[in-house]
Design a binder for these strands. Structure first.
Lengths: 189, 189
DNA sequence: AGGGGGCGTTAACAAATGTTTAGACTCGCT
DNA sequence: AGCGAGTCTAAACATTTGTTAACGCCCCCT
């Protein structure tokens, strides 16, 4: 749980005691490769903190096509956060692309934290702000850069992604077809 | 300041006293039609709460093309929130499309609120969560729906927009050209 | 009242992106 | 060692979207 504790202490000050109680409300879990970490349609009851591995976030459109929305990697929190906050059925689905070890933060633990950690609400604010900024960046990129430019810049957001994720999933993340991405790479040379 | 007070009380409980102090740190301001409400490149020092009117949020790409990212309307908070949080130069620019009355929340007021309102941090969390959910919805839409579908659904997010905003700005928001939007409308009939 | 700028539509053409199909390659599994 | 599934590239063709230019309309400003 070391990296997880550090991630919290990077955001807020917390005494050993209160932190110990909080950590005690969480537990570890391991997803095997290709395992589904969140089933769409279910109401998310937990946030995951990734210790190792990689989770792909997917949305399925009306025609049944899957679109890759996000890759969650080491030291990131991940869930269908909107659905978690609103306690509504998830639209996203999440799939472990590698064997993935996570810390599970059940909703009860998080609510306990908001109320009982001295800076619990602040931690919630900082997490929400952090992921807001991430989303905002994506929107900036989508509006102001071409798929090709976004491809060239992708390692800024996801280092190692080319070693860890098949190219057609990257294409899906960029919002283009695998065939077209292959073409863009060719034209670049 | 009534609507503003209500917006706060909808999120958190606050005593009359602390709320009065907080409101006192804020002030009113009016932007005339077409006035720039935020200059890109400057570091945002305030959040605006719109009492009446409409502000368009714009990003300018490397080639100088403007892209409409958002329309902020009555009872919404608006600023370049990412840049505000990080205290970095704004990438967005904001333009009043109508005469627009706002409550100005200076950064000092917000920081005072986080520290001194009983539920100040919670308010910050709820605001960040609210705008996270908004961004997340946009991303879901962009990935899983065509421009045409998004056009047809736009009044869910921005009621009255057709009466208040020229069509070419809506096209820009949808990420397509005005000519193409015109074409889509035609094919719909 | 008149003029001019902004706006929406249309058409013709250009460029970008998707679709389908095929082939070659890798790599894990038996 | 060899099979098979998954993956990437490639080419040909289809569709979507952008670009440019022209026209008519409206309405805001003086």
């Amino acid at each position: 749980m070391e990296a997880f504790r550090d991630a919290i202490l990077q955001m807020i000050k917390a005494s050993k005691e209160e932190l110990a109680v909080f950590l005690d409300l969480c537990h570890l879990k391991t997803f095997s490769k290709n395992e589904i970490a969140l089933q769409p349609g279910t109401i998310p009851q937990e946030v995951l903190f990734i210790k190792s591995g990689l989770i792909r976030v997917i949305i399925t459109d009306r025609d049944g096509n899957e679109h890759t929305i996000h890759f969650a990697m080491e030291n990131q929190f991940i869930t269908d956060y909107s659905s978690f906050i609103l306690q509504q059925p998830a639209l996203y689905s999440m799939q472990a692309l590698e064997t993935t070890e996570v810390v599970v933060l059940p909703r009860k633990a998080i609510e306990w934290g908001y109320k009982n950690l001295h800076e619990g609400e602040k931690m919630g604010r900082l997490v929400a702000e952090f992921y807001f900024i991430y989303q905002d960046n994506r929107i900036k990129n989508i509006y102001s850069r071409s798929p090709k430019e976004r491809y060239e810049a992708i390692t800024e957001v996801f280092p190692n992604i080319h070693q860890r994720v098949p190219q057609h999933m990257i294409a899906s993340y960029l919002g283009i077809t695998p065939v077209h991405l292959s073409r863009l790479k060719k034209s670049e040379r």
